[in-house]
Design a protein around this nucleic acid. Structure first.
Lengths: 318, 318
DNA sequence: TATGATTGCTGACAAATGTCAAATCCAAAC
DNA sequence: GTTTGGATTTGACATTTGTCAGCAATCATA
C-alpha cells in the first residue's frame, strides 16, 4: 500500500500557487514538468494552474496592433472612411464560422482601448456576444458596462441583456442593464417611459460612454433582425421601401448612412443614430459578404471610428 | 517522382506571412498544423514564423504586474523602503543561476514602464546585461538609451558599453555611449574632460532620463567590482575602512546609504549618487545573499523606486 | 458519525510542439 | 547557361503539452 504524504509544504512565499506556477513557466521558461517538480504537484495540475492563470488574466498574450494594421486593406479602409483603427482578419480556406473569429478580434481591439474608469456602451448581436465571451480578463478597475438597446421580444441567445452582462462579467465591471423593452406599442407610452428616472439615468450613462461596441446587421429576410423577432418582415419591407439597407443599434439606415425612420422609430426606446457620434470610440464589428451594403452604409455615415471586419468583405468594400 | 508545385499563392492579403501565421495561431487559436495548411507551408516553417513573431514583438506575453506584487514580501519591501514597485522572484529548489532569472524579471518590469519617447539611463553589471538581453522587442518608437558610466579598464563581458548597446539594439533605440573612461589618472585631466562638449552632452542626456536601470554590487574580494578590474583591492579596502558596504553606478556607499568618497571619486567621470534622485524611475536589480548589506544600504539611501530581487535575499532584508 | 456532493489532483494516453540535419530555393557571380 | 553561397524550408524524430476518467480529500447535511 502506498504511503500518504501531506502536502509537501503550504506554499510559504507565494500566496497564490497559480501566480507562482505562471511565473516559473512564462517568465523563467521552465517546462511544465520542472514547474511541477518545483511546486511538488503533478504536471497535470500545472496544466490546470496555467489555464487558470490565463483565464484570470495573470498572463495574457498581446498582439501588436501596429502589425495587424499594416496590411494593405486596413490602410485603405482607414483612409477611405476616415477610421482611426481597422482590423482585417485573415481569411481561411476552410470556411469556418466567422462569428467567433470576428469576436476574438473585436475583443482584442476592445481590450487595447480600455482604460481604467471607462464606461462602455454595448449593443447586441451574435458577433457582439462572441466578442464579450472571448475578451480576456483585465486587472483594470472601475469599469462600467451599459446596455444601449432595450430588451427585445422573443428569445434569442444573444439578447442585449446577455451581451451586456457577459461583457460586464468578464471585465469585472459594473453592469447597467436597460430596464425597458426596446419597442412599445404606442408613442405615448414610450414618451411616458422616457420620463422615468431609471430610463433617464440609463440614457445619461450611455451618453457618457467613452466607448460603444456594436454590430452591423443586414435586412435580408433571413437576417438576424428578422429571425430574432426584433422586427416583422412586412415592417422591414416598409423600411426597405424607404431605402434602408442595414441596421445598427436598433435603428435603420440607408445607403448614404442616414437614419431611415418610420412610425416605429417613435415608439422605440433608444438612441437616434446622430446621438452616437459624440462618443469618442465607436467600435463596430461585422463581417460576411451579405452584410456588404450595410457595412458600407454604416461607414459612410461616419458612425465608426474603429472597425473589425473579415478579409473578403473588406476587399469587396474597396 | 513527386510533382513540384509552385507556392500555392504569394500571400495576397497579408504582406507579412509572419503576422498572418501569428494571427491564426495566437488569435484564432488554430494549431500549428492548421496554420501550416492555411498558409501552404510545412508545420516546421510555422514554428519558425511564430518564433520570429515573438522575437519581433508582434506577439508578447504579458505578466500582470498586480499579481506578482501581491506577494507578502513585495508588499513588505514596498512599505518598508517606500518603493513604488517591487518584484520578488520565486526561489527554486534546484539552485540555478539567479542572474538570468533576475534579468528576465527586470526586463519585464522595464518593458512595463517604458513609454514612447523615453530616455533610459543604463549602468552596468552581469544582471543589467542579462536584463538587456532578455527584454522583448517593442513597437514603441523614439527611445534613447544612454550609458551612465564611462568605460572601465580590463575586459569584461558585461561592460557598460555592452549593456547599453545591447539594450538599445533590442529596443530599437538611439544609443548614446559614454565616450570617456570612467577613471582617469589625475583630477585635472578629469576636470578638463568634463568641459568637453561630448561629455557635457552625455551628462545632459543622463540627467534628462526618465528611467535609470542599475545593479547593486557588494565589495567582497571576489565581487564583480574587483574581478572586473574596476577597482584594485587595496583601494577597495580604503573605501571599506570608511564604511563602504556596496556600490552602485560606479560609486560607493555606506550602510546608511550615503556616498563614501575617496580621492579616487574626484578623478572619476560619472554622476554623484545625489544626482540620480531627480530621475523619476530608478530601477535596481540585484539578488543573492552576499549582496544583502549592499542592497539594504541602497534601499536606505532612497536611490531606488522599483526593485527586482530574489526571494531569499528579500526574506533576509525583512 | 455516516452520506452524498463537490472540488481538486493524478497517471496514462493522445495530441501538439520543438529540433535539427538534409534538401531546396534564389540570386548574384562567373 | 552554370556555379556557388546563403537563406529558407522540410520531414522525421524527440520532447512537451493537453485530456480525461478515476481517485482522494473536503465539506455540508442528515
Amino acid at each position: 500500500m502506498k504511503v500518504k504524504f501531506r502536502k509537501p509544504e503550504p506554499p510559504p512565499e507565494f500566496q497564490d500557487v497559480i501566480v507562482w506556477a505562471a511565473w516559473l513557466y512564462y517568465v523563467d521558461q521552465m517546462t511544465q514538468s520542472e514547474v511541477a517538480r518545483e511546486l511538488g504537484v503533478s504536471r497535470a495540475s500545472v496544466v490546470n494552474y496555467l489555464q487558470e492563470a490565463r483565464d484570470k488574466g495573470i498572463v495574457s498574450i498581446q498582439f501588436d496592433p501596429g502589425s495587424i494594421e499594416n496590411t494593405l486593406l486596413s490602410q485603405q479602409l482607414r483612409t477611405r472612411f476616415g477610421l482611426e483603427g481597422c482590423t482585417v482578419i485573415p481569411r481561411t480556406q476552410t470556411t469556418e464560422d466567422l462569428v467567433p473569429r470576428l469576436g476574438k478580434a473585436a475583443a482584442r481591439t476592445l481590450s487595447q482601448m480600455l482604460q481604467s474608469g471607462d464606461v462602455i456602451g454595448v449593443a447586441w448581436g451574435k458577433t457582439v456576444l462572441a466578442a464579450a465571451q472571448s475578451i480576456s480578463r483585465t486587472s483594470l478597475g472601475n469599469l462600467t458596462v451599459v446596455q444601449v438597446v432595450g430588451s427585445i421580444p422573443g428569445t434569442v441567445d444573444f439578447s442585449p441583456e446577455l451581451c451586456t452582462s457577459v461583457l460586464a462579467n468578464q471585465l469585472n465591471a459594473r453592469c447597467m442593464n436597460f430596464l425597458a423593452p426596446a419597442v412599445l406599442s404606442s408613442r405615448s407610452l414610450c414618451n411616458e417611459l422616457l420620463e422615468e428616472e431609471v430610463i433617464a439615468n440609463q440614457f445619461q450613462a450611455i451618453r457618457s460612454s467613452r466607448i460603444i461596441l456594436f454590430g452591423i446587421g443586414d435586412i435580408a429576410a433571413e437576417s438576424t433582425v428578422v429571425r430574432s423577432g426584433f422586427m416583422e418582415s412586412d415592417l422591414l419591407r416598409s423600411y426597405e421601401q424607404q431605402g434602408a439597407v442595414g441596421t445598427i443599434i436598433g435603428r435603420m439606415l440607408n445607403a448614404e448612412g442616414e437614419q431611415v425612420c418610420t412610425e416605429m422609430d417613435h415608439r422605440m426606446i433608444g438612441l437616434m443614430l446622430e446621438e452616437i457620434r459624440p462618443i469618442p470610440c465607436r467600435l463596430a464589428v461585422a463581417g460576411g459578404i451579405h452584410k456588404l451594403e450595410a457595412i458600407r452604409a454604416t461607414l459612410r455615415g461616419g458612425y465608426v471610428t474603429h472597425l473589425v471586419i473579415d478579409f473578403e468583405t473588406a476587399s469587396a468594400l474597396i
